[in-house]
Simulated assay, not measured.
Amino acid sequence: MEFQNQYQVNFLPWRQQKIIKKKQTVTIFSIAAFCSVSIAGFFLILFQHIEIEKKQITNHSHQQKHHNIQQIKQKTITQKKHLDKLLAQKNHLDNVMRNNQFLLLVLQNLPSATPSKSWLTAFQYIDNKIEIRASSYDFQNVSSLQFTFEKLQGIGDIKVKKLSRINKLTFLHLTAKYQGEPDE
């Protein structure tokens, strides 16, 4: 068999050249197709990598913004609590100031509310309770003191705790409740 192949004669050399040319064309086309697919794949991978980096940057930016928003939110909540606390203190101090101003007005009116020939010996204000002690040489004057105090606004529930007389001096001990500033 080996001898048969050695002496084989090619009567159609153009066919052999055509086959070689087709093989070269297919090889060149395959190489070109491989190169194009490789380049396209490379660019696809490159663009995907760029998109991934963009998304990571965007994600990082969103996380940073979210973190900043949370910090601002926490700071705002803290400031609001502090502001509420300060407003509550201000309101409390305003109430105390109004009560003190009204009590001052009551104290300023005490001398005019005290009848002549009578005088106050003690005035106590503790826990919205008022205790008044008065003395007089005239029983009528000191006994009218209770009715005079009832006319003062902001003082109510006036009760005589003790009324006594020693020699010519009459002693009166009143208790009352401070009701606060009258409504206008």
Results as ranks from 00 to 15, higher is better:
F3H: 15
N5G: 10
N5Y: 06
Y7R: 15
Y7T: 15
N10Q: 14
N10I: 11
F11K: 14
L12W: 10
W14V: 14
W14M: 15
Q16D: 11
I19Y: 08
I20W: 05
K22C: 10
K23V: 07
Q24Y: 07
T27A: 12
I28K: 11
F29T: 07
I31V: 09
S36H: 02
I39Y: 10
L46T: 05
I50L: 11
E51F: 11
E51C: 13
E51Y: 12
K55I: 14
Q56W: 04
Q56I: 13
Q64N: 12
K65D: 05
N68D: 15
I69R: 04
I72C: 11
I72F: 07
K73I: 10
Q74G: 08
Q74N: 13
K75G: 06
T76W: 07
T76L: 14
I77G: 08
T78P: 01
Q79A: 14
K81A: 04
L83G: 06
L83A: 15
L83D: 10
L83Y: 12
L87M: 10
A88C: 05
Q89E: 13
K90P: 02
K90S: 08
H92R: 09
H92E: 04
H92N: 09
Q101D: 08
F102C: 00
F102A: 00
L103S: 00
L104E: 13
L105V: 03
L107R: 05
Q108I: 06
Q108T: 00
Q108N: 10
T114L: 01
W119K: 09
A122E: 11
Q124N: 10
Y125T: 00
Y125M: 05
D127I: 00
D127K: 12
I132Q: 00
R133Y: 07
A134V: 06
S135W: 05
Y137E: 07
D138S: 14
F139V: 05
F139L: 09
Q140G: 09
N141Q: 14
N141R: 10
S144T: 14
S144Q: 13
K151W: 02
Q153V: 06
I155S: 00
G156M: 07
D157W: 02
I158N: 10
K161G: 02
K161M: 04
K162E: 08
S164D: 07
S164C: 02
K168Y: 08
K168W: 02
L169H: 11
L169S: 08
F171P: 01
L172Q: 04
H173M: 06
E181Y: 03
E181N: 01
D183A: 14
E184P: 10
